[in-house]
């Protein structure tokens, strides 16, 4: 997605002469075209994330359009007070971009993971998070972030779908698959993993798959079609590479309750930190947290009172959810 992001920023920069792009010394092998295009408006502020966010606020306060980039944990955790005070309290539409959401930096270790990023940021007034599921989502998200006069956080990952051309174009809410074995709401690149695993299954033997792309604490309305589908589903699963607290499940269930939608039995597949105390690839951490397609499917079937799927892999039996 970094390359998609770079291309999207090049397009935006071409029509936005006041655009400033700040990076905290990251972007090697990805952002060079943007650096070359922006010239002195591409600013490597050095290893100084707090200053970077405050600088971005100051630039915006002076009329510039500012984007601040780092890897995800350095983008929101270290400079949280700057985001809270300098950006959000001042109502400045600064755009934050964090690369490598969730466990994407796998074996780099826990300091480099971002498994509580959007939950933390959504506590701030007026901020909207954008979590692309696919590479093709990035360009419309960048355009939307630039068009909205509100602070935004873009959580980049790695597109994991086998064939993006088969997917519907970006919308905030998309139904990727119809299905009768429950309903799954997912955020981020895990959507691609689930789509890869389930798209060839019979409709009766797979869940419906919905993906959410951007949301804020101020959003209250849910699509009517989604509400109807959830109400009719035998079970609901929410899937996210993020901890439960502040995550998508809590956000969604609160809105379902406000809308008076009775929620079916729930399974929440989410980041659970480091259950074994050991570290590994993104796939390792997902597996430890039950963030795999087979595991999720079996948990969903169990929640719905359905028999185990004959197509479930061994992981479904080996990981407690």
């Amino acid at each position: 997605m970094r390359n998609s992001f770079c291309q999207a920023m090049l397009a935006r920069a071409a029509q936005t002469p006041q655009l400033f792009f700040l990076t905290g010394d990251l972007g090697f092998m990805a952002l060079e075209p943007l650096r070359d295009a922006l010239g002195e408006r591409f600013v490597n502020v050095g290893v100084s994330e707090q200053s970077m966010i405050a600088l971005a606020a100051g630039i915006r306060r002076n009329g510039g359009e500012s984007w601040a980039y780092s890897i995800a944990p350095f983008c929101y955790a270290r400079p949280f007070e700057q985001i809270r005070n300098d950006v959000c309290l001042n109502g400045l539409p600064v755009r934050l971009v964090g690369n490598g959401g969730g466990y994407a930096y796998g074996p780099m270790g826990g300091t480099h993971h971002a498994i509580e990023d959007y939950g933390v940021l959504l506590t701030l007034s007026g901020l909207r998070v954008y979590v692309p599921a696919f590479g093709a989502d990035v360009a419309p998200m960048v355009a939307a972030m630039g068009a909205r006069e509100e602070p935004g956080y873009l959580r980049l990952g790695r597109s994991e779908v086998s064939d993006e051309s088969a997917l519907p174009a970006y919308q905030r809410w998309r139904c990727l698959l119809e299905g009768a074995a429950g309903l799954v709401v997912v955020a981020g690149p895990l959507a691609g993993k689930l789509w890869n695993a389930w798209q060839a299954r019979d409709r009766a033997d797979r869940p419906a798959l919905w993906v959410l792309g951007d949301w804020s604490a101020d959003d209250q309305e849910l699509p009517a079609a989604l509400c109807q589908a959830i109400a009719a589903a035998p079970a609901l699963a929410v899937v996210e590479e993020h901890v439960a607290q502040g995550g998508l499940a809590a956000w969604l269930l609160y809105r379902l309750a406000l809308a008076g939608v009775a929620c079916p039995p729930l399974h929440h597949a989410c980041a659970r930190g480091y259950p074994s105390g050991r570290y590994g690839s993104q796939a390792f951490h997902r597996r430890e947290c039950g963030l795999e397609a087979d595991t999720i499917l079996e948990a969903l079937r169990a929640a719905a009172g359905l028999p185990a799927s004959a197509l479930a892999g061994p992981a479904a039996q080996s990981v407690a959810v």
């Binding site: 006041q18 400033f20 002195e40 408006r41 600013v43 707090q50 200053s51 405050a54 600088l55 971005a56 606020a57 100051g58 630039i59 915006r60 306060r61 002076n62 009329g63 510039g64 500012s66 007070e81 700057q82 005070n85 300098d86 309290l89 001042n90 109502g91």
Partner: peptide, 30 residues
Amino acid sequence: GWHPRIPVATGSLGHGFPVATGMAFARARC
């Protein structure tokens, strides 16, 4: 948001100078 001579909220120390630096930088570059 209420007085033109107060461009940003301040109070947590270590914030105003970095924001002012960003304002100065944007002016210089523009």
